[in-house]
């Protein structure tokens, strides 16, 4: 965010932040989804991840949320921040107002409070889209790896930076309506394996995976995925590229 727009401390006093957190434990039959407010004092450079840890340590040990790396690498701490998907560890409280609403990512199975089971969804998508290298030739483990052009490796790496945080799915209007839609994370993976020279699948094979309204043709180009991706992946470009390639397949 532009520094001028950041919420400063005009009198030098730290702000009191109110975090309204959607609480619900599906494992408890008596639990009813509700917003619970917590007040904390803002610290210099505070992220939502730090704020949540402080709340859990000092106010409410029952608060459930996920984190591992604290550095935007593991993708565990994705949640809705004022309705917008984002990583708690990459969101500075100074970029937000004094009242912050936190909710779990929609679409995914709720574990409790802010914790959702993205892993289950991602695994299902990977199995459905067969997002691994397909190659019929036997691998010689004693031989050197086949050389790859640096530019190709860079291009693959660019797409491989996806951390499967689920923000693109939570930001996708199509998925909200149609649960079977593969979403940007799935399409990005197909784009990644399509680039990989070790994967021998052709566009005809990829059409079998994403050539329908649950796949690339279901995308309504709302670009919510692209705008919320914490890794700034070129999702808009990749989906449009796949759409062109799959449309060509459709003409055959």
């Amino acid at each position: 965010m532009i520094p001028l727009l950041r919420h400063g401390k005009p009198d030098g006093q730290p702000r009191r932040l109110t975090l309204e957190i959607l609480r619900h434990n599906p494992a408890d039959p008596a639990s009813v989804p509700h917003l619970q407010a917590y007040e904390i004092e803002e610290a210099e450079g505070m992220t939502l991840f730090i704020a949540l840890n402080e709340i859990r340590a000092q106010q409410d040990p029952s608060l459930m949320f996920d984190f591992v790396c604290r550095a935007g690498i593991c993708g565990s701490c994705a949640m809705l921040v004022n309705g917008r998907p984002g990583l708690a560890c990459r969101t500075l409280t100074r970029d937000l107002g004094e009242r912050i609403t936190l909710a779990p990512l929609p679409v995914f199975e709720l574990i409790g409070d802010l914790s959702v089971n993205t892993g289950k969804w991602m695994r299902g998508t990977s199995e459905r889209l067969q997002t691994w290298i397909h190659n019929d030739t036997e691998t010689d483990l004693d031989a050197f790896e086949t050389r790859m052009e640096p530019a190709t490796a860079e291009a693959i790496y660019e797409l491989d930076r996806c951390i499967e945080c689920g923000c693109c799915i939570a930001g996708c209007g199509t998925v909200q309506m149609r649960e079977r839609f593969v979403g940007a994370v799935g399409l990005n993976k197909i784009a990644r394996f399509r680039l990989d020279p070790r994967d021998t699948r052709s566009d005809e094979d990829f059409y079998e995976l994403i050539g329908d309204d649950d796949g690339v043709f279901g995308c309504m180009s709302l670009v919510g995925c692209h705008d919320v991706c914490p890794k700034q992946l070129p999702l808009q470009t990749q989906i449009a590229f796949l759409r062109r390639k799959m449309a060509l397949q459709g003409m055959r």
């Binding site: 059409y207 079998e208 050539g211 329908d212 309204d213 796949g215 043709f217 759409r243 799959m246 449309a247 397949q249 459709g250 003409m251 055959r252």
Partner: peptide, 14 residues
């Protein structure tokens, strides 16, 4: 061989 996926979703999209 598995039957080919329908090409109609692509055509309808275009």
């Amino acid at each position: 061989t598995k039957p080919r996926k329908s090409r109609w979703p692509a055509r309808l999209d275009v």
